[in-house]
């Protein structure tokens, strides 16, 4: 529709929109996160919802205790191997369209606890992540920023074509494999369709001994 005509009509009290805009407008402004905290980062997540930072301004204060009613999973904290299957199951239980914010160093890569035998080195080994927020813990402002990024991302999605959300693409999986507890580790240790070891450049640090602490 012609922008000029649209403006003209709106001055007369007639609002026009497209289905896509309406759909995205609704989705961006009422993101309901899952009420689910894992570790220290969850405290900052709670602080974000409280008076000073007030996440309600973004239409996202309705934390739902049940995954069936949530659109957004904020993975706030360290995902341990014991917890990982449950996180994946919760994600599978959420209705589409759904999004994931990986909050904090731990959820991204294991963070300070990377050497831990029971720590999953990043939740993106098992579920797709939309926004990563670095920090240990990220400040509430960082979470708000991630929120606005997510809103932008949702707003850019279309109902058809290349940029349609995952659930409108028949080829994309709607469920992800839930790892089992093994004798020494999770089985499988990652979802190979989702996560591949990144190609990094290895520089020879040589005989640098100052590197160890």
């Amino acid at each position: 529709m012609d922008e000029k005509l649209k403006n003209e009509l709106s001055k007369q009290g007639i609002f026009t929109t497209t289905l896509q805009n309406l759909y995205n407008w609704g989705r961006t402004n009422s993101i309901w996160p899952l009420n689910f905290g894992l570790a220290c980062c969850a405290i900052e997540m709670i602080a974000t919802t409280m008076a000073r930072y007030d996440m309600a301004r973004f239409g996202a204060e309705v934390f739902r205790p049940s995954p069936r009613q949530a659109d957004l999973m904020i993975v706030a904290g360290t995902v341990t191997k014991k917890m990982a299957p449950l996180v994946v199951r919760l994600y599978n239980q959420m209705p589409e369209p759904k999004y994931v914010i990986s909050m904090g160093a731990c959820a991204i890569s294991g963070g300070p606890f990377k050497q831990g035998y029971n720590v999953l080195k990043g939740i993106d080994r098992f579920i797709p992540v939309d926004i990563y927020i670095p920090g240990c813990p990220p400040r509430p402002e960082a979470l708000l920023d991630a929120f606005m990024e997510l809103q932008k991302k949702i707003d850019e999605q279309t109902l058809t074509g290349e940029k349609r959300p995952r659930h409108l693409n028949a080829g994309e999986p709607s469920e992800f494999v839930v790892p089992r507890y093994g004798a020494h580790d999770l089985e499988p240790t990652k979802n190979p369709n989702l996560w591949k070891a990144p190609l990094v450049q290895i520089s020879q640090a040589g005989t640098d001994e100052s590197g160890s602490h």
Binding site: L38, A39, T80, F113, G116, Y117, N118, V119
Partner: peptide
């Protein structure tokens, strides 16, 4: 217990 066992003592 153990869903947040981050191996603090081992590390």
């Amino acid at each position: 217990f153990g869903y947040l066992h981050r191996n603090h003592e081992k590390i």
